[in-house]
């Protein structure tokens, strides 16, 4: 993707976002008491919507010139791996608990970015997770163990 294409795509996305924002502003139901008021809950959004549309239109019509986005040197797999692991974290934390989810996330993150030393993958990941758990326990913040808590009890 060239820089200009990327710029146009981003500007178009923000234009659509602003348009949607503006249209939805009409649906904001202000209470009857504000009927005579010069400013209601929908006034500010009705001002911002057109402003966002105007600015994104300028960018859409005249995208800034510049070098192509340097995607060639990017390691998309690494970044996507890390984002995927974050999604795993959000999914798993209530089930596997803080320590196990955190340790798996960290070990997975180190591995996804190229770390292969077992000591780092295991010890650092588990050490940081347990360290956080101990620290928060001392601060009276309860971080549960998810399914393991139920197994133990």
């Amino acid at each position: 993707m060239t820089r200009t294409q990327g710029e146009r795509l981003a500007a178009l996305a923000i234009l659509l976002f602003s348009l949607g924002y503006f249209v939805l502003a009409f649906g904001i139901k202000a209470p009857p008491s504000s009927d005579d008021s010069p400013f209601s809950a929908r006034s500010f959004p009705l001002m911002l919507g057109p402003l966002g549309m105007a600015l994104s239109l300028v960018l859409l019509v005249r995208p800034p010139e510049g070098a192509p986005v340097g995607a060639a040197g990017f390691s998309w797999g690494r970044a996507l791996g890390l984002i995927g692991l974050m999604a795993f974290y959000a999914l798993a934390i209530n089930h596997l608990g803080f320590v196990v989810t955190s340790a798996l996330f960290l070990a997975g993150g180190f591995w996804a970015l190229g770390e292969r030393r077992p000591l780092v993958l295991g010890l650092v990941a588990l050490g940081v997770s347990l360290g956080f758990w101990v620290m928060f326990s001392l601060l009276d913040v309860k971080l549960d163990w998810g399914v393991f808590e139920r197994i133990w009890s």
């Binding site: 890390l82 974050m86 960290l106 997975g108 993150g109 180190f110 650092v124 940081v128």
Partner: peptide, 10 residues
Amino acid sequence: EQILSPLIAF
């Protein structure tokens, strides 16, 4: 960086 980035994300 393979250690630092996951730690910051964490």
